[in-house]
Amino acid sequence: MLEIKNLHVKLADEEKVILDGLTLSVPKGEVHAIMGPNGSGKSTLAYVLAGRPGYEVTDGDILWNGESVLEMAPDERAAAGIFLAFQYPMEIPGVAGLTFLRTAVNAVAKKRGTKELTTPEFMKLVKAKGAELNIDVEMLKRPVNVGFSGGEKKRSEILQMALLAPSLCVLDETDSGLDIDALKVVSDGVNALRSKDRAMLVITHYQRLLNHIVPDRVHVLAHGHIQKSGGKELALELEKSGYAEYKSKAA
């Protein structure tokens, strides 16, 4: 279970407060959506969960399976099962996708105390996961994300997610830059990874992603904290009324 308690976050080198008392729980087996207007702190929440440098938690805590992750390095969080699918996946020229992924999978295996994979074992796993998710693994022969289309980058993120077998998936604006076909492939991939042992937090500005990845709960984030929570119908309400109600609260 993910428990975020009264989380206060500011930028490390500025006074600007971004998250201002955010409280949220996501039990295993559930998919929760975070929706909110631009600038509400959605991406900050994703980054803080993954441990990106540059943010300072001034109050509150993040617990994963009952343990605080705040003192954990990003790679330790990954080993603990936390995975962030980036809104803008990074390009790494000169490193083949397969090399990158094998390094990651084995680094995580080492920390989790499971067996590291040989190259043939790893290739077998990649092919199996690719087939499961309907993702062509050929792209992994190219340098990580270099020259990939928006759809390819997101597919590559989902494949990485499947290979690292996380127990908490955070998807940051996974729908951005996707056409409807790519959206479907990516959503099917995410749905295939839904399981009773896995919690998912889907961050999005638009309701359309939630037609494909149907959430158990929807939370509206604005002004740095959760303004309203509800079932999946809340997303449809927002689609009709927009975020005006939450924006006006700021004024």
Binding site: A50, G51, R52, P53, A73, P74, D75, R77, A78, A79, F83, L84, F86, P89, M90, I92, P93, G94, V95, F100, L101, T103, A104, V105, A107, V108, K111, P143, Q160, L164
Partner: peptide
């Protein structure tokens, strides 16, 4: 690029290994 280091670390690759990988990629092309 610190963002690239973070990307690698978010995939479970420890910092020293991430740096080595990125340096390798830098000369790789």
């Amino acid at each position: 690029d610190p963002d690239l280091i973070f990307y690698c670390r978010s995939r479970g690759i420890p910092e020293a290994q991430a740096r080595a990988l990125l340096l390798e990629s830098f000369v790789g092309d």
